[in-house]
Computed example of a mutant assay.
Amino acid sequence: MISPALSQKSALTHALTKLIEVLDEENRVLQEHRVGLHAGFTDRKNQALRELMAALRFESLPSAIDAVKPLVQKLSATLQDNARLLKLHIAALGEVSDIIIGSLKEAESDGTYSRIFASRRS
């Protein structure tokens, strides 16, 4: 739960909230195995990080940082979940790639495609 002190939206609060929302959405998509193109999430996370860096330049006072501690803790937990889910997703993609490569090598070794390629060269 976010403290009442965060009710007034500072640029820092807004930037942290936006980044958490993007990560939460990406985590949901990864958990539901609905991943299509991942570039959209990467772009949105990069934009949110740029906004966070800009906000930190203007609101780096200890009181401003203390006011967003609950959001920073939530961001940390969300980032850990995101890293775990992305690692699982990347590992799964690697396994699928290995299966495809293995199938292609097997098809080449049994001559399945050699006739097709030989006839195209003629």
Rank of each mutant, 00 (worst) to 15 (best):
T13K: 01
H14T: 10
H14C: 06
A15H: 02
L16Y: 01
L16V: 02
T17Y: 04
T17K: 02
K18Q: 12
L19Q: 08
L19A: 03
L19H: 02
I20H: 04
I20M: 04
I20G: 05
V22C: 04
V22D: 04
L23C: 08
D24H: 09
D24P: 00
E26A: 06
R28P: 01
L30P: 00
L30R: 01
Q31L: 15
E32D: 12
E32A: 14
E32G: 08
V35P: 03
G36R: 10
G36I: 08
H38L: 15
H38I: 14
H38W: 11
A39K: 12
F41W: 10
F41E: 02
F41T: 01
F41Q: 02
F41K: 06
T42D: 10
R44H: 08
Q47L: 15
A48E: 03
A48M: 08
A48P: 06
L49Q: 07
L49D: 03
R50C: 08
E51D: 13
E51L: 07
L52T: 00
L52W: 03
M53H: 13
A55R: 02
A55W: 01
R57F: 05
F58Q: 13
F58E: 14
S60G: 14
S60K: 06
L61K: 07
L61D: 07
L61H: 09
P62Q: 03
P62G: 05
S63T: 02
A64Q: 10
A64C: 11
I65G: 02
I65M: 08
I65A: 00
D66A: 09
D66L: 03
P70H: 05
P70G: 06
P70F: 09
L71P: 03
L71F: 05
L71N: 04
V72A: 06
V72Q: 02
Q73P: 01
Q73M: 11
Q73N: 10
Q73R: 10
K74H: 10
L75P: 02
L75T: 01
S76Q: 11
S76Y: 03
S76K: 09
A77R: 05
A77T: 06
T78M: 04
L79S: 13
L79W: 07
Q80K: 13
Q80R: 10
Q80D: 13
Q80T: 10
D81N: 11
N82K: 02
N82H: 12
R84C: 09
R84G: 06
R84F: 15
L85I: 02
L86Y: 07
K87S: 13
K87N: 13
L88G: 09
L88R: 10
L88F: 07
H89L: 15
H89W: 15
A91H: 12
A91M: 13
A91P: 07
A91Q: 12
A91I: 11
A92H: 13
A92C: 09
G94C: 08
S97M: 15
S97Q: 15
S97P: 04
D98C: 10
